[in-house]
Design a protein around this nucleic acid. Structure first.
Length: 258
DNA sequence: AACAATGTTCAGTC
DNA sequence: GGACTGAACATTGT
């Protein structure tokens, strides 16, 4: 489920893992921990602690402290398509339903654990991720900045919204929701939007983000339940149409979204 | 069984 | 080189 709102939620969970002494790390999933060989992440974390949890777009990272109290590398965590962060306290560990889906685990001296739980295995853990390659966080970007960045390309609007280098945090569902709210076609060439349209897009991006965070996830968006064959636009009743835009499955109201 | 899935990345093309 | 597209990636659910 992870788009910006879900990742922000996960980041807050991560905060429960801060300032606890690390006694063991399971980094043996070579796919999830690539390019680090097994044991490499463990060797820099064991004996130290996580000291802060940050997020930009869908990427999270923790600052670390080594056993001597000096600053260590950052620990990057990405949830991929369906990952979750689980942090357990002391002995009160829920019966782990599918332990084989724990792709990365940090154990603390109090017996609790931090886990990346990810059945699809598209999540990722790595040291010192390049967060500066990401565009501004979708929550912070200004209308002016959005206009500049959209104006640099005539790729389809939705493809630009999904490009994490343009702005970070928007995923497939949030893109469809925002475009529907803003009454803009996903396939409009990005650089053809006029100032009024970019402002409308920006306003509705803010609204959609705010609503998703308040309501517990992007799946609570108004258009999401209408992304299926036979569905109609909840505003005008016209049939929802489906296609591929920016390489992703896309649903929109052809009548209203221009 | 074939296909799609809320994400990223890499190879290939223009 | 930059911009853009589509397939690949690992796995599960329909």
């Amino acid at each position: 489920m992870p788009e910006l709102p879900e990742v922000e939620q996960a980041r807050r969970v991560l905060e429960h893992a801060l300032d606890r002494r690390i006694v063991a790390v399971d980094d043996t999933d070579e796919w999830v921990c690539r390019p680090h060989p097994p044991g490499e992440i463990a060797s820099v974390l064991v004996g130290g602690a996580l000291t802060a949890a940050h997020r930009r777009g869908k990427t999270m990272w923790c600052d670390t402290r080594d056993p001597h109290g000096d600053e260590g590398p950052t620990l990057g965590v990405h949830l991929g398509m369906g990952g979750r962060i689980v942090v357990t306290d002391a002995e009160h560990d829920q019966a782990p339903r599918k332990p084989e889906w724990n792709r990365f685990t940090v154990r603390f001296d109090d017996g609790g654990e931090l886990r990346l739980f990810d059945k699809r295995r598209l999540g990722r853990v790595r040291l010192d991720p390049d967060v500066d390659a990401l565009g501004p966080d979708a929550e912070d970007i200004t209308a002016a900045e959005l206009r500049t960045r959209l104006g640099r390309s005539h790729a389809p609007l939705k493809a630009r919204l999904l490009d994490q280098k343009v702005l970070s945090g928007v995923g497939n569902l949030l893109a469809d929701e925002t475009l529907w709210q803003a009454r803009l076609s996903p396939s409009r060439p990005s650089d053809e939007l006029d100032r009024t349209e970019v402002n409308r897009l920006h306003r509705n991006l803010e609204r959609a983000l705010q609503a998703a965070i308040a309501n517990g996830g992007v799946h609570t968006g108004r258009i999401i339940e209408h992304r299926h064959p036979g569905a109609t636009c909840p505003r005008c009743g016209a049939p929802m149409v489906h296609g591929t835009v920016g390489g992703r499955s896309t649903w929109w109201c052809e009548k209203e979204q221009r």
